[in-house]
């Protein structure tokens, strides 16, 4: 690790980050406004509701990330969880040889 730079990089400056976030929010607002200005061709009915795609994107994203976060404590193990297993299974026959 080298010394931290005196001047933060472009994407670490607060104004840049805030501009980017504002840009995303602005685009989202524009896309929501666009709902009034194009002809929908729903296949199922519900996909023609106002704001269906924006809502689907937002809710689906939150659902995935948050449910994965909930699942993490169940699934996560130490990094060498399997390495130990592998080492043991490599050593098992050797141990047996010495025992018998």
């Amino acid at each position: 690790m080298t010394q931290p730079q005196t001047r933060p990089g472009v994407f670490e400056r607060k104004p840049v980050i805030q501009t980017l976030i504002a840009l995303i929010a602005l685009i989202c607002a524009g896309l929501l406004a666009a709902e009034f200005f194009y002809a929908k061709h729903p296949h199922f009915g519900f996909d023609g509701w106002f704001g269906f795609y924006p809502l689907a994107g937002f809710v689906a994203y939150c659902f995935i990330v948050l449910s994965a976060k909930l699942a993490r404590p169940l699934l996560r193990r130490d990094e060498d969880y399997y390495d130990e297993q592998a080492r043991q299974s490599l050593q098992t026959p050797i141990e047996d040889d010495t025992h018998e």
């Binding site: 995303i24 929010a25 989202c28 896309l31 666009a34 924006p54 994107g57 937002f58 994203y61 939150c62």
Partner: peptide, 13 residues
């Protein structure tokens, strides 16, 4: 719409 609102969700989270 789908992608940008998902990106917005990332920003929020």
């Amino acid at each position: 719409q789908l992608l940008m609102f998902a990106a917005l969700a990332f920003v929020v989270l």
